[in-house]
Design a protein around this nucleic acid. Sequence first.
RNA 1: GCAGAAGUGGCGGAAUUGGCAGACGCGCUGGACUCAAAAUCCAGUGGGCUCAACACCCGUGCGGGUUCGACUCCCGCCUUCUGUACCA
Length: 739
Amino acid sequence: MNALGLGYDWTKEINTTDPNYYKWTQWMFLLIYNSWFDKDLNKARHINELPIPAEITDAMEIENYKDSHRLAFISMIPVNWCAELGTVLANEEVDEWKSKGYTVERKPMRQWMLKITEYADRLLTDLDLVEWPTSTKDMQFHWIGKSVGAEINFDVKNFDKSVKVFTTRPDTVFGATYLVLAPEHEFVSQIASDDKKAEIVEYLKKASEKSDLERTELSKEKTGVFIGAYAINPATGLEIPIWIADYVLAQYGTGAIMAVPGHDERDFEFAKEFNLPIVQVVKPADGKAWNIEESAFVEKSGFGMNSANSEVSLNDEPTPKAIEKIINWLKEKNIGEAKVQFKLRDWLFSRQRYWGEPIPIMYFEDGTKRSLDLDELPLLLPEVENFNPAGTGESALATVESWVNFTDKKTGKKARLETNTMPQWAGSCWYYMRYADYANNEIFCDFEKQKYWLGNGGVDLYVGGAEHAVLHLLYARFWHKVLYDFGYVSTVEPFQKLFHQGLILGEDGEKMSKSRGNVVNPDEVVGEYGADSLRLYEMFLGPLEAVKPWSTKNITGTFNFLNRAWRLIATEDGKLSEKVQDIELTPEQDYVLNYTIKKVGEDIENLSFNTAIAQMMIFVNEFTKAEVKPRSAMEKFVLCLSPFAPHIAEELWQILGHHKSVSLEEYPIFDEAKVVKQSIEFIVQVSSKIRAKLQLAVDLEENQVKELALQNESVIKHIDGKEIRKVIFVKNKLINFIV
RNA sequence: GCAGAAGUGGCGGAAUUGGCAGACGCGCUGGACUCAAAAUCCAGUGGGCUCAACACCCGUGCGGGUUCGACUCCCGCCUUCUGUACCA
């Protein structure tokens, strides 16, 4: 990187695995842990400010109540457990190990979660504040996935229970002909009939062995099992069967749905597969008949039908009105209410691996616990011989007796440390702020420094790959907002302007990889053509955001350009060329110079480096033609070139007689008056076809141009005595005679 | 399937309040310099037609449309890339 002349200040290097750095990652985790989300104020507050209900008086119960409100909490949630490996696998690792013959199952295990869902609304609305690519904003928008609907309770026949479902179409409740629970739903084992239990266990086993990916790959064929229980449709009063099926996800909504096969594609497919009744309760707005046995009617623009009981009728109501009406009825009867649901799930934060920041919480023998104080951080990882997981689902840390079990100095009590560690994402959630105050040991970043460097809406320009569009960029926004709520940062959002650079592919148009053998080694290119040629070529390839192939052959273009630029100013042996003299510029040279300064400056602002370089090539071509080169133009050109090709520019600058580094110079200023052309090539069209080009002075009026144009031979020929019906005139551009 | 982006010479790409399509570079062709070559410099280079020039015609993935005028705007398709995965 040094050879390429990239301007990194290595004294400010940071490292998320450095204890002095992860001290603050742990501190931030504890800030989150010691918070609850005040829905009224729509922000995080300290856990000690949480109002405790009067009926809770027992100290232990108060702690439990607090724990259930913390933004970091423990939950039993399904993870990819591989018993043979004794460890939990990431989604993308599952297939790899399964193909090696290992068994991976979805098993609920104790995990630390962060309540990012509390920030769902803010993460959504604050997207308006940032200058990000629309595609990335869209991705986050869909990922957060806000849907507005209702929750409805369906009583279970013969049980004192009711299944809560979430639906965006409560108006179709009259058409709900069965319920479907996620296989993992807690009611399944409780309400299933005995004769179905064997079948259910079998189905559950199969479902648990499927990864999320497999569940969806099998999407075309719906599977499920009737569990021998019935629910009562609260709208119709009818008994409807309860099924389990893995197309219903435990993690979303309530983990249960009311199935309306007449008005939902998935429910329709399922009903067809298992011969369940389909009832039409919405009709198309155009009044045409709809064959509900053929396909589901899913438009939200219809009118209700077959939807009435003794208390409420949705018949002939347009869908939006019907939704409103049924929600009011559900509320009145206390069987449901309006509900906003997000696709966004809480963040599974813990890892059962050695390499990660230890979660700084200790548990005492009496069942109480405490988080570490700032003066006890960082909580270091112990030195170990064996990094393998404990095999119990815990990390290697659980096997380090001396680390895990100890006597707490502050309380004198025997304690056991949490053995979970944090994910890679944690340290990258806030590193962008550490650069502003990289060595501070009192706080993660001094507020004033943070405000100075990042106060203008966050990081001014954040360049990174599109693969981070939803995970890193969402997690970091979440942490930043928590820090904002406690006044540690001055902006609501961490990254003001975001740019995704495109990948440079190998010469074969494929991703560069060792296995494909298409990797280009920059060191070799630098050796042959120099660092400036490489830098310039990478920028000249095409737009920064585009994915584009490398071509070693084409680097001669930028290499030649730099050689030509050199010869403009210097001799082969590095002396100032005798042709560089203090002379006036010709009007044409003056224009090219000023336009180059303007264009390159603007293109840098827009990150359009390829066109900036093209303009500098035009400059060099123009001045190569000249017998004598004006010194002032050469100096300004070197200043333009300097950010792109710093090494050559530096040498040329010194050859031109300067002693101060060119990198300390200001970018040159152009003369606005000189970038306006004195004369322009004017287009003359006859019936929209170009028939002549005239070299004219600028700002001529229509009459003047018309007169000149009509004297042109080619124009006369094409008008051919015909009547001119219309004349279109665009100032300084064209005149068009319609005949 | 859904969402987003893209499709322009032999190649990378340029051109957006709709107004010269192909800037700039690579490659290729010819010339100058040289004993020769490399390097360098100069000229040419979308296709068709033409001995050639002029002129003319065609041309921005495909098919329509709006407009005096469309790479650009609208409708419908095709292809490629990226992301995502039954979210009730």
